[in-house]
Design a protein around this nucleic acid. Sequence first.
DNA 1: GAACTTAATTAGAATAGTTCTTGATCTAAA
DNA 2: TTTAGATCAAGAACTATTCTAATTAAGTTC
Lengths: 139, 139
Amino acid sequence: MTTQPSQIQPTGIPEEINGLRMTRQRQEVYRFLMGEQSHPTANEVFIRIKEALPNVSLATVYNCLEALVQHKIVRQVNFDREPSRYCPNLDEHGHFHDETTGTIHDVKFKPGIKLTDLLDLPPNTVIKDIEITLRGQLA
Amino acid sequence: MTTQPSQIQPTGIPEEINGLRMTRQRQEVYRFLMGEQSHPTANEVFIRIKEALPNVSLATVYNCLEALVQHKIVRQVNFDREPSRYCPNLDEHGHFHDETTGTIHDVKFKPGIKLTDLLDLPPNTVIKDIEITLRGQLA
DNA sequence: GAACTTAATTAGAATAGTTCTTGATCTAAA
DNA sequence: TTTAGATCAAGAACTATTCTAATTAAGTTC
């Protein structure tokens, strides 16, 4: 039985993603987010990865999240002025905020829909990012 | 020549809108927003209405804006974690944030488009509010 | 209109999420 | 191994916003 290839760490996360070196802290942050549908806040990530890395600091969690966002490995999601949340789903999608439970759900477009086709945008507009937020209740 | 009806104040804003009593401070906040396409922040509103009301406080501006938003007289718009901005346009529309100039533009839907028809929402979902944010450049 | 009640305003303190600073530690390369 | 640069930790600092307490204004009742 041979050893694992060096790209694979104990966390199961590659050493590098999209040009970002995946340090142990970034791996833990990323791994946790990947297993969550709940769109955790920085503080929730912090509390959770302390189990694996007791000495990790909140500042590091913020640094990791910022690095992951900038390298398009996760998405940052904002609802009004609430704490930012983080989402591992990179497909174009919106977020539905259920006011009753406080939970957040990803919302896909129906097949074949391209949002920019439906908007009355000025000509020569280059769109780099779209964010769709819905608020309401699951009746 | 008779006097003006008592509903009309010197600012030209009615005494009440959507059940909200329009105090002098609220009038000034509202009047300023109505004349702006620039989606000002609370602080920008504050600086501007101090010209008419030198003793107004920033807390009052926040109070006024909150009251106007809650009574659906203006909309609060958020871009990431930047300071909230305020928009007098109540039609369903999105916001395009031009990264080059930092300006914000309202974006309409093409005629006949209803966003909720295009989204793959769970059944029995009651949508109370939609926010669409675009970021990019006017090339 | 005077007394009373409630709402609105002000000023400044407090809060909370996030960012910054500094020094220590780790990593990759030479 | 040495060096340079990146990353991390801890706590201070920052900033938009909210809260608190006291004052003022407005509306209501007599």
